[in-house]
């Protein structure tokens, strides 16, 4: 009885999360451009996307920046969480305060301040400015997730390691890292998600040489968002599911 209840709860949550996605996927095959009703099956949008180089390029750029930003933010953020958890240093309180500020600052404020800083530092607007901005706004999410995980674990383990003469970097690599690994994965996933969908900050800090998908999609509103965007979503979904099935099978075999 409990089990049925449990699984129906899980199913309900997934239905909530996937219902809009299912609509997207269906509409990527819909003849109708706006998808308010089913007007017949077509692969036309897929063909169109194939020819739409600018959109495809923006999509690839987005994936690239999200992967890099999430990875870098996870690395830096994990180290930051460690510093805030383990070390005493001047400006420690300020540092964690600043992390909260990043989370609380409205997008538009971050966007404008980033742009001002990049212009002042002479950083060319484009790939690098975008990457730095994305890393920065992802950081607090990683730090908080990892910190929460660090918070609960056994101090004695670390003290023992220290007494046995292990260096800080060794302690990090061999003890802390494996223990907080789930949180690191969670932090990466959250960062990737945030980075993949940011519009306002990216609009301000990127240059003409590096277009990303969200800006383009929001910009399309002027002439009508094309179902090609649904196609992109469907493709990414399919790719993710393929990837996860594959890795699950692989893991299963290993066990």
């Amino acid at each position: 009885m409990m089990k049925v209840f449990k699984w129906s709860f899980i199913a309900a949550i997934f239905a909530y999360l996937y219902l809009p996605i299912a609509i997207l996927v269906i509409n990527s095959f819909n003849v109708s451009k706006y998808g308010y009703e089913w007007k017949g099956f077509t692969l036309n949008w897929y063909a169109k996307l194939w020819e739409n180089e600018a959109l495809a390029q923006a999509f690839l750029n987005s994936l690239l920046i999200a992967t890099l930003a999430a990875t870098a933010a996870t690395l830096i953020g994990t180290l930051m969480a460690l510093a805030l958890y383990r070390y005493r240093f001047p400006l420690k309180a300020t540092s964690s305060g600043l992390l909260f500020i990043v989370m609380m600052s409205p997008d538009i404020v971050l966007a404008i301040t980033f742009l001002v800083i990049f212009i002042a530092l002479g950083i060319q607007l484009g790939f690098w400015s975008l990457l730095i901005a994305h890393i920065t706004f992802c950081l607090p999410f990683v730090v908080i997730t990892v910190y929460a995980q660090l918070k609960g674990f056994d101090q004695y383990l670390l003290e023992a390691a220290q007494d046995l003469g292990a260096s800080e970097s060794r302690i990090f690599r061999l003890i802390i890292f494996p223990l907080v690994f789930p949180a690191i994965v969670a932090g990466w996933l959250l960062s990737f998600t945030l980075s993949l969908d940011d519009v306002i900050i990216s609009s301000f800090v990127t240059g003409p040489s590096f277009e990303i998908l969200p800006i383009r999609v929001f910009s399309m509103v002027k002439v009508g968002v094309s179902p090609e965007v649904n196609v992109l979503a469907t493709l990414l979904l399919a790719l993710s599911l393929l990837l996860v099935t594959f890795s699950t099978l692989l893991l299963r075999r290993k066990h």
């Binding site: 003409p208 277009e211 929001f218």
Partner: peptide
Amino acid sequence: YSTYENNEVMYSKIKLQKGKG
């Protein structure tokens, strides 16, 4: 070809970059 989602974003960006870019 670079895109923006509204006039206001375009204006602010051009303004801050002093018309460059």
